[in-house]
Structures are given as structure tokens and as C-alpha cells.
Amino acid sequence: MGHAIEFQDVTKTFRGAGRPAADHVDFVVEKGEFITILGSSGCGKTTLLKMVNRLYEPDSGKITLFGTDISTMDVVKVRRGIGYVIQQIGLFPHFTVGENIAVVPKLLKWEKEETDARVEELMNLIGLEPEEYKNRYPAQLSGGQQQRVGLARALAADPKILLMDEPFGAIDSITRMKLQDELVALHGGMGKTILFVTHDIEEALKMGTRVMIMNDGRIVQFDAPENIIRNPADGFVKSLVESAKAKEQFWERFQ
């Protein structure tokens, strides 16, 4: 079967850019891992995700999913098997919430009853009452609610691999915590492989079975959360960890 996701020396430079957005990226992710990806803005996290579902093609190197080179696979089929939460949310404004969530099941020609049941199930999971929200248009939702619908849409067809680009960015901390727990539970129960981009180091350390830290298109450290905290690979990782610790001290002041 092979590794769930493997990058072999993948490089991608956008036209006109001074340096690569992905610079000789090389890593392996096994089935069932929950990988969180951290790194400052513009370091190439989104680029990395988009190469997995071939929204971007690498200039060189090879990417395989479960042992198959994705450049040899039908791109539409690859994508239907991968859940994708895009950073800009990207809900279809002319579809209702229910229709947005049902997009991939419909593309896969599920039975209508099955699709409907799945939509209800997911709406309950993301905490949006189906009765009330199913027939609304995205413009009638708050930013955080839109983001949750984007999450449900990615989960709809039960994909083996999930790519999530800052899926909780616009969500309040209480709902966020609940969604984090649900995603972790979902992940544990289903053996899904997840790549999860976040700017929140605590979220990254809490959710990830391993954490990937990127800087300037390169992976600077890719390790279990406790190893990242104990042995930061370089100054950049160290400053990230320290920023999280500083936050903790801030809270201790109030106790």
C-alpha cells in the first residue's frame, strides 16, 4: 500500500518569485497520522497542501499517495478522494448550506437519501441545527459558521486524506476547542490521514501526532510535539516554542 503521503525532493518556484515556495521538501506521512503544520506567513504551507491535491504542480520531485505517483493519476479522481478545507473558505454562494455540504457526495453520485442523511449528520457535528441552517445561503451565516460549513463540506464523502488550511481561523475559542476535540475524535476513530495548517502553536501541539515546522519553503523540524518542545531544531523553532511559553506565563500571572 505504501505511505499515505510521501514527498520526494519536491521543489516549486512561482514565476517571478525570488525563492522557492517549496524548497527540496522531503517527508513521509503514514496512514492515520495527524500532522499539524506551523510556520510564519508566506513560508509555503498552502503551497505544500495544494501540491497534494494537484492544484499546484511541483517543478521537480515526486509526490505519492498510498504509493501511487499522483502525477500519473486522474486529477479529478484524486481530488474527490481528498477532503479539502481552503484557507479562503470558498463556499459556493449560490448553493444553500445543505447543497454546499452535499457537493462531493453528489459528484460521487450517492443516493439522495444517503446524501441527505450525511448532510444532517455533519451539520449536527459542526453545531449548526439542520432545521434552521440547511436552507440558508452562505451570505446569511457568520464568518465562523461559514468556516464550519467549509469543514463539513470537506468531510462529506468521508475522504481518507484531509487537507485543512487554517480551518478554525475565524472561530471563537469555545467553539474552536469543541471542534478540535471532535476532529481529534473523528481522526482517531476513522484512521484518517490529516494535514492541518494552523498559526496557533498550541493548537498545533495539542492536535498533532507530529508537528511540521516550515520556514522559507523548507521543513525545519518534523517531530512529535514533545520533541519539538524539548529539542527545538533551530532558533526559529525555539522562538516559536518560547512564544507559546510566554503566553502561558501571561496566564499564570492571574492565578
Binding site: V76, R80, Y84, I89, L91, F92, V104
Partner: peptide, 27 residues
């Protein structure tokens, strides 16, 4: 048409023709 919407459609596995007919034309 909003690039994020088109990209989401592609990312979810709509074919270019489906994106045109279901997303770009209506919008």
C-alpha cells in the same frame, strides 16, 4: 467570479466543465 470559490470547486473534484456550468456561469 471569486478565485477562492473556483479553487474550492476544483479542489473538491469538479471537472473544468462542471466548474464552468455549476459555478462560473451561475455566478
Amino acid at each position: 467570479v471569486d478565485g477562492g470559490v473556483v479553487e474550492a470547486a476544483a479542489g473538491l473534484g469538479m471537472s473544468p466543465f462542471q466548474i464552468l456550468v455549476k459555478i462560473k456561469f451561475p455566478l
